[in-house]
Amino acid sequence: MKVFALLTVIITGVMLVYGAEDFPKWGDPNQPGSVHVAPRYTQGTYIEAGTPNIVTSVVADYRGYDTMGETTVIFTAGMACILMLRKKKRGEGESNV
């Protein structure tokens, strides 16, 4: 098992290092990730979304739907715990979450 795990990890690592070869340098201001979609958020945040905090405007507005999904994830996790761990009520006792 240990050998298998090590092998998997090494293969994955080699693959990731191989992929990193074509990555832009760290902190490169003109990397493709920063010039395609993101500038609109920076420039439009106050005009379009009404807040100077860009992350806020993206979280709550541009990609607000993702955030709703995110809260649903939390809800799901909560319900999951209730589903899994809630015991039958013992007499008057509180439910044991």
Binding site: Y65, D66, G69, E70, T72, V73, T76, A77, M79, A80, C81, L83, M84
Partner: peptide, 18 residues
């Protein structure tokens, strides 16, 4: 967005199985 919903579905599935 696929990832977000994938996680919703997965967490639900984990719990439903458990």
């Amino acid at each position: 967005n696929v990832f977000v919903f994938l996680e919703i579905a997965s967490l639900a599935a984990y719990a439903l199985i458990a």
